[in-house]
């Protein structure tokens, strides 16, 4: 992908993270006291309650994908600025993509399992 398109995506994901991250931080810190949010299942915004709700679980999934892209693209930019060279550049891009993808897959697994577990 051309670098300018990657940069545009970086800006767009950044702005979307404001929304999804805002939702996540609100459910943990604002909409209910921190002690209640840290409970496993016994309060309206506890861990399992958030996963139970399709919309909230969906926003967590969105946050996962957006942060993985934005954060690892940022790391790629920083690493590729420190040293140049064709093999180094390809190695950094590949490693960053693989790690980000692995995290997204692992996180999606967590969200799916937790959602199903909560709705049993």
């Amino acid at each position: 992908m051309r670098e300018k398109n990657i940069m545009l995506l970086h800006y767009i994901t950044g702005i979307l993270i404001l929304v999804a991250g805002g939702i996540h931080l609100s459910t943990v810190f604002l909409l209910s006291p921190y002690e209640e949010s840290m409970k496993f299942d016994s309060s309206p915004f506890s861990v399992m309650s958030v996963y139970r709700n399709v919309l909230l679980a969906g926003s967590l999934e969105a946050l996962l994908i957006l942060v993985a892209f934005h954060g690892f693209n940022g790391l790629r930019v920083i690493l590729q600025e420190l040293h140049q060279g064709r093999t180094y550049k390809k190695a950094v891009s590949l490693t960053v993509t693989v790690v980000a993808l692995a995290l997204v897959i692992y996180g999606t697994r967590t969200i799916l399992i937790a959602h199903q577990l909560a709705n049993l």
């Binding site: 861990v47 996962l64 995290l103 692992y106 996180g107 697994r109 967590t110 399992i113 937790a114 577990l117």
Partner: peptide, 8 residues
């Protein structure tokens, strides 16, 4: 992500 993944 690793820590929350551990829970399930």
């Amino acid at each position: 992500i690793v820590e929350t993944g551990n829970v399930v």
